[in-house]
Design a binder for these strands. Structure first.
Length: 450
RNA sequence: UCCUCCGUAGCUCAAUGGUAGAGCGGCCGGCUGUUAACCGGUAGGUUGUAGGUUCGAGUCCUACCGGAGGAGCCA
């Protein structure tokens, strides 16, 4: 029944072709066995054997096969169906029937159709295509069963994260997209004009979320971020979405517990609620079943030893590259936290470990199966004097960050937060080999269309 | 920014330096249980662009344009 409520409208009675029928969706079809129903659909594929036609129909909620027998419909209806091209839009009426021969378990005996539009020759054939061609036709590609499944899982991941955070007492706060300067000072920003001033598209809402945490306690943001990096890999997008929680009175240790509980919740939620979609994607779910809190933790020091033991050259003080992350992840069957990175490899706002000032109280969460870093978090500096020192070391403008410094002047408290990259999380849970399929219209190096 | 690879029909790909082809899709016809259905017929090309080598270039060379994968950077 949850599925019934979730997927589309149902029960609208229409008077059509002289017969009362129920306008419903394919997602709800199991509730209408033996009944006459009407569906608004697109033709995915058609097969014919002279006196019988099989219409593969989709409506966004699922796929069903309509069976039309020549002797049981009017010659006009038969001809109309025979002339349908791929992706033509139509209303279709028929009786729902259970059938063992159908992959979904249901079929429709078609009694009538009403063509809305006969589609022009559809560019995407039911066969393999190259990446460039598919990306040029992304607006049509998302109609395919595989892309539909990914986008549904993406939406469900977002919902699971927001539900979990809301249930834990977090408040949604929206940081600005247009900002006066860099949030972290490292990556290349998207420059734009703000009337007579310079402005940049946000690369992280974190600093604003720290302000929000001082106002509302536990907060999170969810929105797009922008990096003008010339990165061309399967893990990078120019525009991507992040969830960024920030919590007052939370230290490094509790920060990790919140991260692992949230990630585990999301994975288990998808396993429960997106079985059909994961099946379409042929995702091996056994690896996902294991994703339950707590997650293993290793320090940066231990990770360096692990890499050296595995025969990789790596010295203390460097940052991990993709091959290093993969090697570390291979040693665990769950996501693994790497904590306590050298201060020099991380952002200016991270709090040093009180017992070892050369490392900071931070964590990267590395997903299994080579999907790399999906979460990065840290406890933030709360001492105004240390923060001022960091500004000088990183040559950041005191003036631009005056408001951020104020947070340490007026009731500074220990606080922590993290950012989860949505697209990498979707790629991992769906088992995809590239993040370009995880977002409806990816913005990449050399791609701003469609 | 750097490294490696690839650009041939609408799509996916073939073609020793010697007459540019197949499958799918389109169109026409056949088939009463098809699962990217199948069978027969048919149309479809300035081989990414510009130069060069050669009797002759899709094929070899140079530059440019476009794409893919990776590095760095990052989530």
């Amino acid at each position: 029944m949850t599925r019934l409520i979730r997927q589309g409208y149902n029960g609208q009675v229409t008077n059509w072709m002289g017969v009362r029928s129920v306008l419903t969706t394919i997602g709800n079809i199991s509730a209408h066995v033996g009944e006459k129903v009407k569906l608004g659909v697109w033709l995915y594929n058609r097969r014919s054997s002279g006196k019988i036609q099989f219409l593969q129909l989709r409506d966004g909620t699922g796929m069903i096969q309509g069976v039309m027998v020549k002797s049981q419909v009017s010659p006009e209806t038969w001809e109309q169906a025979a002339d349908l091209t791929q992706e033509s839009s139509l209303y279709i009426e028929g009786t729902v029937r259970e059938d063992e021969r159908s992959p979904s378990g249901f079929e429709m005996d078609v009694t009538g159709i009403e063509v809305i539009q006969t589609a022009e020759e559809y560019p995407i054939a039911l066969k393999e295509h190259g990446v460039e061609f598919l990306m040029d036709h992304r607006h049509l590609w998302i109609r395919s069963p595989r892309q539909r499944s990914i986008l549904r899982i993406r939406a469900e991941i977002i919902r699971a994260m927001q539900d979990w955070l809301n249930g834990e007492g977090f408040t949604l706060v929206d940081p600005p997209v247009l900002t006066p300067s860099s949030c972290e000072g490292t990556t290349n920003l998207f420059h734009t004009k703000y009337f007579d001033e310079d402005a940049y598209l946000t690369q992280s809402g974190q600093l604003y979320m720290e302000a929000a945490a001082m106002a509302l306690g536990r907060v999170y943001s969810f929105g797009p971020t922008f990096r003008a990096e010339k990165s061309k890999t399967r893990r990078h997008l120019i525009e991507f979405w992040m969830i960024e929680p920030e919590m007052a009175f939370v230290d490094h240790e509790e920060n990790l517990r919140i991260q692992e509980r949230m990630v585990a919740h999301v994975v288990q939620h998808i396993l429960q609620h997106c079985r059909d979609e994961l099946k379409v994607l042929k995702r091996d779910t056994s690896a996902l079943e294991k994703v339950k809190a707590p997650f293993p933790r290793i320090t940066y020091d231990e990770a360096v030893h692990l890499l050296n033991r595995e025969g990789m050259e790596f010295s203390w003080g460097e940052d991990f590259g993709a091959p290093h992350e993969t090697k570390i992840a291979e040693s665990f069957d769950k996501p693994v936290f790497i904590t306590h990175y050298p201060t020099g490899t991380k952002a200016f706002y991270m709090k040093p470990d009180p017992e070892r000032s050369e490392v900071v109280l931070c964590d990267d969460l590395i997903a299994p199966e080579g999907y790399g870093e999906v979460v990065g978090g840290s406890q933030r500096i709360d001492d105004p004097r240390l923060l001022e020192e960091r500004f000088q070391q990183h040559q950041l403008s005191q003036e631009a960050y005056e408001w951020y410094m104020d947070l340490r002047k007026y009731g500074s408290v220990p606080h922590s937060g993290f950012g989860l990259g949505l697209e990498r999380t979707v790629a991992w849970i769906c088992g995809l080999d590239h993040v370009r399929e995880t977002i409806p219209f990816p913005r990449m190096l050399n791609r701003l269309y469609p």
